[in-house]
Simulated assay, not measured.
Amino acid sequence: MTTPSPFTYEALPMRVRLGPGAVAQLSEEITGAGLQRVLILCSPEQQDVGESIATALGDQAAEVYPHARMHGPVEVAAAARERARQLGADGCVAVGGGSAIGLGKAIALEHGLPIIAVPTTYAGSEMTTVWGLTDNGRKRTGKDRRVLPVSVLYDPELTISLPPQVSATSGMNALAHAVEALYAPDSSPIINLMAEEGVRALYTALPAVVADGTDLEARTEALYGAWLCGACLGATTMSLHHKLCHTLGGMFDLPHAATHTVVLPHALAYNQPEAPRAVAALKRALDINSDPATALWELAGRLGAPRSLHELGMAESAIDAAIEAAMTSPYANPRPVTTEGLRHLLSAAWAGKPPTT
């Protein structure tokens, strides 16, 4: 028996509903949060879902605001904040993935309006106090309790229409949250259990989800895994993987989930020599005896997801600028981050090569 090292664990205060039909309880959640009139936030692609939710809410819905964009451009956040003020909204319902929920967080950060999240992807932002805003190609992130949703409704029926590749990259993005939590400096036995179970659930569910998007059982299992992985992200410090993805996304406007998909196996391979406990946990979760980084790279291939930054539109000549930006501020990581190490990592990720240490 291994005695746990001293640790601190703090649960984040929020309600979670998970299961088919959960969105039908949204009106009850709004009332329970003490709200009367909410602004419905979504991306243009999710406007139909936003409109249907607004119709169901009736007078509780102030308006549908379908202008969320990835990476949280500051100008979009400013316009949304002003619209919420004009409408007299006392809260927001963010419907969609990380873009919509990120927009809700921007409004909460500025005006303190409570958020209720209705995720339709596996991004996991709804489980964290992390916010992100992009200004002039630089993405800033921070943590603030004001941006944490007061309630989250996970309804797998809302994910049925999620295309196979979006499901794949969104799920890989969620896996990254748990992987980094396993070697975070402020992890704990509780978080490790959640991370291992979250990885297991997503690794099992994603191939079934991509094969048949109407498989409600697989969709439910994937949302369950995404919830656990997101909670791990919310409770720990982000490391090399997230730092690189925020840098690449902010500088080159690369698609968020796809960037996580490409970078994850390479960042994990970089850190594996200094994270033996994380490697052991991942081997259990993936039910393998081989290298976890390679297993995740192979999973992306089986899912038909992108495996190179080149595919996402990044120029090879941009690698040097990305390295310089990533090295500008220190961050927690189990293995020291060097310019040479980042060049090896990003060159392999750009070309779509298998991950190596």
Rank of each mutant, 00 (worst) to 15 (best):
M1Y: 10
M1S: 14
S5L: 14
P6Q: 10
A11N: 03
R17A: 06
P20D: 14
E28C: 06
T31M: 08
A33W: 03
L35V: 10
V49F: 05
G50A: 10
L57W: 02
H67C: 14
E82G: 08
D90I: 02
G91V: 02
G91W: 00
S99G: 08
L103S: 10
H111C: 11
G112F: 08
G112N: 05
I115F: 06
V118W: 03
S125K: 12
E126I: 05
N136I: 02
G137A: 07
Y154R: 15
V166K: 08
T169L: 02
Y183T: 09
S188T: 10
M194P: 03
Y224W: 13
L228A: 08
C232K: 04
C245W: 02
F252H: 11
V263W: 03
N271I: 04
A278L: 07
V279Q: 12
A281E: 04
K283Y: 10
L286W: 02
S290C: 14
D291G: 06
G304E: 08
R307H: 13
R307W: 11
H310G: 11
E311R: 15
I319M: 05
A322W: 03
Y331G: 11
P334H: 13
V337C: 07
T338E: 07
L346Q: 02
K353L: 14
K353F: 07
